[in-house]
Amino acid sequence: MHDIWALAEQHEGVIKQVSFELLHRGRLLADSLGVRLVSLVIGHSVSSASLDELIARGADEVLVLDDERVSDFVCETFSNILVRLVREHRPHTVIAAATSTGRTLMPHAAIKIGTGLTADCTELRIEEGTGNLLQTRPAIGGNIMATIKTPHHRPQMATVRPKSMLPLPRDASRKGSRVNIELHLEDIDERVKVQGYRRDPSGANPVEEADIVAAGGRGLKKGENFTLIQELADELGAAVGASRDAVDRGWIGYAHQIGLSGKTISPKLYIGAGISGSVQHLAGIKTAENIISINSDPHAPIHQIADLSIVGDLFTVIPIVIRKLRQKNREVR
């Protein structure tokens, strides 16, 4: 069939936003090849409306494996299913979001299938003439962009960085089909058992999936002052990020760390307050669309890459910003 496949992710029956972003990527690839875009959903109790949403957002076909035994992600079981379906349907390309799930499942499945995989791409294109997927990704702390291809193996596989593209606007008039897939007993790997979930105590909004990230660093001076960043984030509808220094001091959990040894993010807006902008921190925000820095040191490196640099005391500037945002939010409502 040589279609483009995009893996959709769900949690507790709800399709994740990243899956719609991914469909936009897939749509562009499918259109440039003149093939179909297939969305693969593995999960349990995904509503019919969400499955229709996948079509409204770009899919031509939705392959659904709905079974209680695959409600939670288990690498081996999901990989068995993906590998089986890929062998059966022979897609041209398989893409997944570079989430904890995509970055676990895809390398596992790529080995089993015997094909290459490129991680965390920010750009995907089809090479004219060959149909090769040109996979572009930042590497070495965002200092270079590498373009990678998989010339002799099929399917071509890539994970795509969340937030590196907006979803397509919803088009309810789009037509598409839905195909149900059976779970095979031999798909299930009994060696891993999911026992449950625990929420992140410092907020469940993951930085890598947020449109806006408000981050704090050592300039906050103590852990309690993170509430200032939290309040700013709340008014903006943003996720809270941090420098390694702030994480190492125990002010906030590692899930919030941005940079070379933390998360790499591509939000529409990144705000860094009390963060100097070390090369390691900047490695994580190079692909942010807009950057605002708030730092009292005019020579702090973060000011050099910011679109708006505020040279000032974060403890005086941020409360005023929060006040103005509150006012604005009240007007909107």
């Binding site: 094909t115 930042p138 270079i144 998989t150 190079k286 050099q304 679109d307 640099s309 505020i310 040279v311």
Partner: peptide, 18 residues
């Protein structure tokens, strides 16, 4: 299976209002 076909240095262009 994979080949690196191109490497580019990234240049960050920012308007930079201060």
């Amino acid at each position: 299976p994979t080949r690196v076909v191109k490497i580019e240095q990234t240049t960050v262009k920012r308007e930079g209002k201060t």
